[in-house]
Design a protein around this nucleic acid. Structure first.
Lengths: 104, 104
DNA sequence: TTGACATGCAACCTTTTAGTTGCCTATTAT
DNA sequence: ATAATAGGCAACTAAAAGGTTGCATGTCAA
């Protein structure tokens, strides 16, 4: 889980996931297009995404195809974010109450 | 949004949010208890959480009370994670299909 | 079979991050 | 008043992160 959070912390990596979400199965070259980064930097980012199991790859001849794996993202939603949903309104109203108490 | 992702990337900070979720309105001292870190380190983490608007604080005499703000977490879920839900099964089945094609 | 193309590997540099130590300030209780 | 308590500030360190350059390798097309 920690690896996934860390992988998602970088905007370039989130953008790579966005691009794979828009079109799955892209090659490294595809994913480099239009980015202000060297190919090697992109490779490293993809490596981190792969280590976090957010991306799976298969070699196809001299090309490497990248596929989005949405499962870990889904798990973050289910196992972590949902926990904070419960009591969201309660927490907010308590916060508001406390902030207002400041002016007493 | 980037600040929130970065703030959530650290396990110590997520643990602080967990603790505030369990009991809201804790002081700095409360939040330091049982952590293998100096108070100053915790202060820094809380500062990052506050900058990301995940925590709000109010001084109460010599104490500083910390309140969880669940809104940014909720937004990550709504604006980012949900996007990857759509087509989750589709992406998975395509991935599976491609992985199986490897053995042809 | 040779050149172009797609990717891999490794060393290096710079900035950020996580944490520390040491000292200072403000509030409260005795 | 004064001592203990709660927290703030700043300088420093070590390690990790993000990125680069240079070169090597494997695959495809002419």
């Amino acid at each position: 889980m920690d690896e996934v959070f860390k992988a998602l912390a970088d905007a370039s990596r989130r953008s790579l996931l966005d691009r794979l979400h828009a079109r799955n199965g892209q090659t490294l070259g595809d994913l480099c297009d239009g980015l202000a980064m060297t190919r090697q930097a992109v490779t490293k980012h993809l490596g981190i995404l792969e280590a976090a199991n957010l991306v799976s790859t298969i070699r196809h001849g001299r090309e490497k195809l990248h596929y989005l794996n949405p499962v870990p993202i889904h798990q973050i939603g289910e196992r972590w974010i949902k926990k904070f949903e419960r009591g969201r309104l309660a927490a907010l109203s308590e916060l508001k109450r406390q902030l207002e108490k400041r002016d007493e």
